[in-house]
Computed example of a mutant assay.
Amino acid sequence: MTLLTDVQLRPVLDSRGNATVEADVTTEDGGFGRAAAPSGASTGEYEAIELPARESIEKTTEHALPHLEGEVDVNHQRDVDNALHEADGTGNFSEIGANSAVAISMAAAKAGADSNGVPLYKHLGGAFRGENFPIPFGNVIGGGEHAKDATDIQEFLGAPVGAPTIEDAVFANANLHATVGDILDERGVGAGKGDEGAWAPPISDADAFEIMEEAVTRVEEDVGFEIRFGLDVAASEMYEDGEYVYSDTTRSPEEQIEYMADLIQDYDLIYCEDPLDENDFEGTAELTEAVSDTDCRLCGDDLFVTNVSRLQEGIDTGAGNTILIKPNQIGSMSDTMDAIELAVRNGYETVISHRSGETEDTTIAHIAVATDAGFIKTGAVAGERTAKLNELMRIADRAA
């Protein structure tokens, strides 16, 4: 037994310059863990509730810390997380804030790993298998809620599926990001960057698809292995009064299903996240069936929100074949692992994901390795994004 003896909470900056919560956890034998909560811009209606950082810290200090300090064993993560749930008492962390809850939960897991002298991914029960590494999705063109006056589709993602090592994959995505920038320059298109470091040019979705195809071809020729791409549509952000509102048109739910199916097939997309509204399980099931002859990972983010009840509804209706995993969406490591286990048992793939408002925390890299996830979303550039990618390469290097 290794008691958690001290929790320190503080506000820190996230990548958008907003305050988020960082937690330091110390154990009786000197084990230490530090973690910080990310935050999203395109957030699902059913996510755990984030409070303003200072309010969350105040409420957590009052209601949760007395149930943690000197009371729970960091080697039993579920005891830590149950204490957080019991102190909160709401089911969605709306009392103490999911930002404080997930920061403490992740920090406690790190403290347990430190006490046992093992990397976090091993503490979580995983092993690095060398050839089986999570393929990183690199966000290279972005719009939607992450960048105004850019594409309607929120993310165009590189996927270096043929990379022989995680290092090759990471640098291929960085190459793809740079190549997209070069193509934009060649076309005389000025572009800033969105929340996640993706280029945010004032172009149409159709132009973005053309640029992605050209960039992928160039980088494949350079690196010598297969690269594909995918999308995060974030369709809930477009959904208004029963229609999907694009900058140049509107689509009915039926037209949106047909449009998404055509994109998946025409561009051989390996990934398509949230192609429909977050409440449309039946439509997502229809789309899943329509593209069942492809290898596209039809992924629920806002649809599932890392929640076992939402995921079970998707399983029961046949909606999607992949779940996006975001620990802060559900508020604790145990709830996160429960969603992953349910997905794997039912043949769903998992994609471990960052948020648009990020920190330098690298927990998701360890979760991806520990659970043998097929993919990880981190972005491709910017320090808070590369922190996760660099950690994946460190894990691979240590395990070699």
Rank of each mutant, 00 (worst) to 15 (best):
D295C: 01
G242F: 13
S334W: 00
A83F: 10
L65R: 02
A163S: 09
E220Y: 03
A83K: 02
A215F: 01
I395N: 04
D207M: 11
R345K: 09
L389I: 05
W199T: 00
N175C: 02
V381C: 05
E58K: 13
T90F: 12
D248K: 10
F137E: 00
H354S: 02
N390F: 01
T249A: 15
G300V: 11
F171V: 02
D241G: 05
A172G: 11
H177Q: 04
H366Q: 06
D262Q: 13
E167V: 08
D88I: 04
R228M: 11
E358D: 10
L342Q: 05
Y259H: 01
R34P: 13
I183V: 15
E286K: 15
T371Q: 08
D6A: 12
T363F: 15
K110R: 14
R228N: 13
S247T: 11
T60R: 02
V291C: 13
T90G: 13
Q154A: 08
K59A: 12
G91Y: 04
S56T: 05
N92K: 09
T288C: 06
V305D: 05
K377H: 04
D152F: 06
N321C: 05
A159R: 04
F304E: 10
P160A: 12
L120C: 05
D372E: 13
G158Q: 00
G112T: 07
D316P: 14
V245H: 15
M238L: 14
T350S: 06
Y246S: 12
Q312I: 03
A169W: 11
L269V: 12
R297C: 09
D241K: 10
A370K: 12
R297I: 00
Q77C: 10
I183P: 15
V291M: 08
T250L: 03
C272K: 01
I183A: 03
I330W: 09
T250K: 11
D205V: 01
G320N: 04
Q8E: 09
E86W: 01
A215S: 08
K59I: 11
G331K: 04
T306D: 05
L263P: 11
D14W: 03
L324Y: 02
V369Y: 03
H85W: 13
G31Y: 12
A370S: 14
D222S: 11
E221P: 13
T284Q: 13
V216F: 13
L324A: 07
T317L: 11
G314P: 09
C296I: 07
L276W: 03
A285W: 02
I153V: 10
T5P: 15
R228P: 06
H67Q: 15
Y267P: 12
G331M: 02
V118Q: 15
W199C: 01
I57A: 10
D232H: 04
P38D: 09
V140I: 07
H366T: 09
L276P: 14
G89P: 13
A396Y: 06
F171N: 04
S56V: 11
T249D: 15
G300E: 03
E47F: 08
E286C: 10
G97K: 05
G33I: 03
V381R: 03
G190Y: 14
T2G: 08
V7A: 09
L65Q: 06
G162K: 02
M337S: 04
D29M: 05
V381E: 12
E47Y: 15
K377A: 00
S39Y: 07
S356C: 10
A35N: 06
Q77M: 00
V216C: 06
A98E: 07
N139I: 00
E226D: 12
A109N: 05
